[in-house]
């Protein structure tokens, strides 16, 4: 059984130019514990696919199964990390991370305080920053808080929608390492939307290259885990980067 199974997903939007097919009978399986990146140019439907998997966008046709269950039943297994950190500005970091607990008050399991502390430490927050408001944080810190909030409910599957697109390269690679560590420690499944090839190669077990609402190619990444930052400077990495880039170009033809 796969963590995520998408079968014949079809999504159409009605825009100014009439009916537009955003996802075209798309199928994708994500094995449990794997990181799969959705890579493609703007408008290829990668964010829409992620939103369909999250249940945030409706699909006209097709099915999504999470751990073999329908979305309604499996909602608690998912967490979403948005492109902007989407922290509530009037809450402190601590209170933002606690938010999912407050919303799902029925599912309060274990020691909430300890879980929040654990998640904040996991994403590298110093205790002195726990009670700051988002306006007092840098972009990278906001994103760390956002990831901590996603982890707080201990989801089996993380859905990330270009979370690091607005950050500089150094911060981006540092947060990539953070994500790898989180997934390695917990065997979580991750579906990751990006348009950064290097990030996709570094993070993923396989890369789904998307074009015009379809998966054009599913490219397995040959590097073993655990991966470290040194991998990025090896010739093998550069050569594989070239292959993915070529596949991306091919898909657009």
């Amino acid at each position: 059984m796969h963590a995520i199974e998408c079968r014949d997903i079809q999504v159409e939007f009605y825009g100014r130019q009439g009916k537009q097919r955003v996802l075209d009978e798309l199928s994708l399986d994500v094995p449990r514990g794997h990181i799969v990146s959705l890579l493609g140019p703007s408008g290829c439907g990668k964010s829409t696919l992620l939103r369909v998997v999250a249940g945030l966008a409706p699909c006209q046709k097709g099915t999504v199964l999470i751990e073999g269950e329908s979305l309604d039943r499996a909602r608690g297994k998912l967490a979403f990390v948005f492109q902007e950190a989407a922290l509530l500005p009037w809450r402190t970091v601590w209170q933002n991370v606690r938010l999912p607990f407050e919303i799902q008050s029925g599912n309060l399991i274990g020691d909430v305080k300890a879980s929040i502390e654990h998640c904040l430490q996991l994403v590298g927050f110093q205790p002195s920053d726990w009670h700051k408001k988002p306006s007092q944080l840098s972009g990278g810190m906001k994103m760390r808080a956002s990831i901590a909030r996603a982890l707080i409910t201990d989801p089996e599957i993380l859905l990330l929608d270009e979370p690091f697109a607005a950050l500089d390269d150094m911060l981006r690679s540092r947060l990539n390492d953070l994500l790898l560590r989180i997934v390695a420690d917990s065997q979580r499944t991750m579906l990751f939307v990006t348009h950064n090839i290097s990030e996709a190669v570094y993070l993923s077990h396989s890369i789904a290259i998307m074009s015009r609402g379809r998966i054009a190619e599913l490219v397995p990444v040959p590097f073993p885990f655990p991966r470290t930052a040194e991998l990025r400077s090896t010739p093998l990495f550069a050569s594989f980067y070239g292959q993915v880039s070529e596949a991306l170009n091919r898909s657009e033809r």
Binding site: L78, F80, F82, A86
Partner: peptide
């Protein structure tokens, strides 16, 4: 903010 609304929807608020 749409992201905030989505966040609440994801939690089944």
């Amino acid at each position: 903010d749409q992201n905030h609304l989505d966040l609440f929807r994801m939690q089944g608020a």
